[in-house]
């Protein structure tokens, strides 16, 4: 075939996720907030878990977080990730308790631990037009 392996891609037009993916392109972390009661929720859902409202807006969250949990992967579950081994999957918790999942790549991934402070980086992929979230440890 000769085609390079494509990274698994999200559906950035999915109505429930579109604002989030546009946010990543704009270098912003946007999550779902209920118009009626103000509940923040992640992952996005059709109904507000608190009041069952179905209208939402997408406020920007701070880009600082703390590692809640993580995974360091040594055997790729998909061919695209083979050349990035080992890579980390990082679930980072914002101050308001929401947790967003992103990657960490590079030499330092084995140093990732619960409680480590991280900052959001936004990695734009020209070919797919998708921007991916990376969590990068901060030194302070």
């Amino acid at each position: 075939m000769g085609n390079p392996v494509q990274r698994p891609l999200p559906d950035i037009e999915d109505p429930l996720y579109q604002a989030h993916f546009q946010g990543l392109k704009d270098q912003q972390l946007r999550v779902q907030q209920c118009d009626a009661c103000g509940q923040l929720q992640w992952p996005p859902r059709d109904l507000c878990k608190q009041c069952h409202g179905d209208r939402f807006h997408w406020p920007v969250m701070p880009d600082q977080a703390v590692v809640y949990t993580y995974s360091v992967v040594y055997r790729a579950p998909h061919p695209w990730f083979k050349e990035h081994l080992p890579y980390a999957i990082v679930v980072a918790e914002l101050e308001n308790g929401l947790r967003l999942l992103g990657n960490a790549f590079g030499a330092d991934v084995e140093k990732i631990q619960c409680g480590v402070r991280v900052k959001a980086h936004f990695q734009h992929d020209e070919d797919s037009g998708v921007c991916f979230l990376r969590w990068v440890p901060t030194t302070s």
Partner: peptide, 29 residues
């Protein structure tokens, strides 16, 4: 499935051992 396809598979969170490792690593912590 929407959560998986949009928020996890793109980040290489694809196999059961990866999901369950999130639980395990937090447990150790």
């Amino acid at each position: 499935d929407d959560i998986r396809r949009n928020l996890e598979y793109p980040y290489g969170m694809i196999a059961p051992m990866q999901w369950y490792s999130l639980h395990a690593n937090r447990w150790f912590h």
